Simulated assay, not measured.
Amino acid sequence: MFWNKKKKDKGKGPKANLGLMIAELFGKTPSLDTFYNELEEMLITGDMGGSVAMGIVDELRERIMKDKIKDKETILKELRAIISGNLKTIRILPDHDKLNVFLVLGVNGVGKTTTIAKLAQYYKKQEGVKILFSAGDTFRAAAIDQLKIQGERTGNRVIAQKHGSDPGAVIYDSIASAKSHGEELILADTAGRMHNKSNLVNELKKIDKIVNSNLNGGQYRKILILDATTGQNGLQQAEVFNEAVHVDCIILTKYDATARGGLIVAINRKLNIPVAFVGHGEGLDDLSEFSPENYLDDLLALE
């Protein structure tokens, strides 16, 4: 599932923001030039960004001209196909009987610690692995405390040092401790100080080097958490973290709030980073594997 398929209220979710706007546009039966211009504006409003929206509309224009398409059903089908071609998903699974490290990235406030707890729940149920939490965000005392709470909530050990400690040392100690205790997966929190980009990038590069030097054989993944309601700011965040450590995949949180949906398309098209999961609630089980088909159903629904 993309997320729980509960009935949506009008005015909420991507359907109300983009799908219904496209439906109204079809209802106006404008000239093709007007249609293209207004569709481009709608895609931008849906958080795809100017260059991505322009590229999608240009490709749609070419298909309509080439195949002489006139009916709205076929136009919508072609639009869906174009957007679908930009969507990328991935399954991130830890190796059994080896130590794996999943570095959880993201700015403050996107739901990193909550998502770490959800990932732990998911991997325990799906893979049965033993998990360790690593409190690598040492710059916020609240982040350390929050991860400890999530550790108690999910029954997982937490490796933490005092506020202000070296994050790289915490990750190093976590790897050593997990090896000695037979844990198979480290879910490591990290700082998200976007206001101090150079320090953040340097810190993440140091952590990246420590993991690569001390992990033997298991999966090492860098997972970026993005808040779906942040719009194009999410793309900027993805660019910064990807520059620092090459992000392997994205988890989109808060998607069932008032997200407009296009952020996924923009990131997939511009940065080629796939989406692994979608968070859709506060419960430990409120994490679903990303489904491009269900995503498109909601994004472009006309009824």
Rank of each mutant, 00 (worst) to 15 (best):
A178I: 08
I273M: 09
K148V: 06
D285S: 15
A81P: 03
A244H: 04
L226F: 04
Q161C: 04
I83V: 11
K5D: 08
A238N: 10
A228N: 04
K7Y: 03
M42T: 11
V278M: 15
K118P: 01
E24A: 11
I92C: 11
G111L: 00
D33M: 11
I171S: 06
L79S: 06
V107W: 00
V110H: 06
L132A: 01
L43V: 11
I186C: 13
T229N: 07
G109I: 09
N268G: 12
I22S: 02
K112F: 00
T34A: 13
H163P: 00
A259D: 02
K7F: 05
G262R: 10
G27N: 14
A228H: 01
D227K: 03
E239S: 09
R80S: 15
G164M: 13
A238H: 06
F139V: 13
Q237K: 04
V107F: 07
H280I: 07
L87R: 03
A141F: 01
S288V: 01
K12G: 03
K12R: 12
R91G: 11
K270I: 12
A176Q: 07
G46H: 01
Q121C: 06
G217N: 06
I64H: 07
V245G: 01
W3L: 14
V158T: 10
N100K: 04
L185G: 03
G234F: 10
D33K: 15
P94K: 10
I44V: 15
I69Y: 06
H163G: 00
L79W: 08
H96F: 13
K130G: 00
K162S: 04
I186P: 08
S84W: 03
Y123E: 03
Q146A: 14
L263K: 04
D256H: 10
L204D: 13
S213E: 14
D227E: 11
K98F: 02
N202P: 04
N214E: 10
L299G: 05
T154S: 10
E289Y: 14
K5A: 08
K77N: 03
I116Q: 13
A228L: 06
Q121P: 01
G55H: 14
G128E: 11
A276D: 09
I273D: 02
G136Y: 07
G261P: 02
K124T: 10
L43Y: 05
L215P: 07
E303M: 09
G281S: 04
T190M: 00
G19M: 04
A176R: 02
G27T: 06
D173V: 13
F277S: 08
I116D: 09
L43K: 08
L226S: 13
K254W: 05
Q219G: 09
I264C: 06
I131R: 02
E282M: 09
A178F: 08
G46F: 03
A188P: 03
G27W: 00
G128L: 01
L287F: 09
I82G: 15
A141S: 14
G218Q: 04
D208K: 08
L39W: 13
K15Y: 05
L132R: 00
K66N: 10
E293K: 14
